[in-house]
């Protein structure tokens, strides 16, 4: 397991707290969703950063009231075919303007990094070392994007309007 952030393999500074285990002081932690909801008042008083592991079958609206006190939200891909957390990520970034770390956990493939990044993830738990190493290449495979998201990439629909005054470079039809 490698953690990739900002395109590089990094050390995980967060400690995972299991269901009922005591929350250690002074270190960044990731707590389970139920724990966050139950102990929100206490967790707020912590000095060190707090994150939450949010399952993919729970509404983000439930998490929303706590977001301004969270440093990290970890979303879950139980299987690489299960795409629910993409929607949660976009809601967190685009509707609730969550600015902390958004971590993809579970089963994540190299070929999905770009989708995840576009949806708002900025940190990835990666199973295969080779995938972690290929991160930069995998997220630079495409230079054209059709959908506006909060990732800041320019979208073709807009780029076209921007060039409206310049003469259109049209592709010649195929042979």
């Amino acid at each position: 397991m490698r953690l990739v952030k900002g395109g590089r393999v990094v050390e995980d500074r967060f400690v995972r707290v299991l269901d009922e285990a005591p929350v250690p002081d002074g270190v960044p932690v990731i707590v389970p969703a139920a724990r966050l909801l139950a102990d929100a008042a206490e967790l707020v008083r912590r000095e060190a950063p707090t994150g939450v592991l949010w399952p993919n079958d729970r509404r983000i609206a439930e998490l929303a009231p706590h977001l301004d006190r969270l440093a990290l939200v970890a979303l879950v891909f139980p299987h690489f075919k299960d795409g629910r957390a993409y929607s949660q990520a976009r809601q967190l970034r685009e509707r609730y303007c969550f600015g902390g770390e958004l971590r993809a956990t579970g089963h994540v493939l190299r070929d999905q990094f770009l989708f995840m990044q576009r949806a708002g993830f900025d940190c990835f738990e990666v199973k295969k070392d080779a995938d972690a190493e290929a991160f930069i290449e995998a997220t630079r495979r495409f230079s054209v994007f059709y959908q506006p998201t909060a990732d800041g990439r320019t979208v073709a629909l807009r780029a076209r309007l921007a060039r409206a005054i310049a003469p259109r470079r049209e592709r010649a039809p195929a042979r």
Binding site: L114, Y146, Q147
Partner: peptide, 13 residues
């Protein structure tokens, strides 16, 4: 077609 192509949220429905 353009909106749905390589959609970052709806490719693993």
């Amino acid at each position: 077609r353009q909106w749905s192509t390589l959609h970052p949220e709806f490719t693993f429905l």
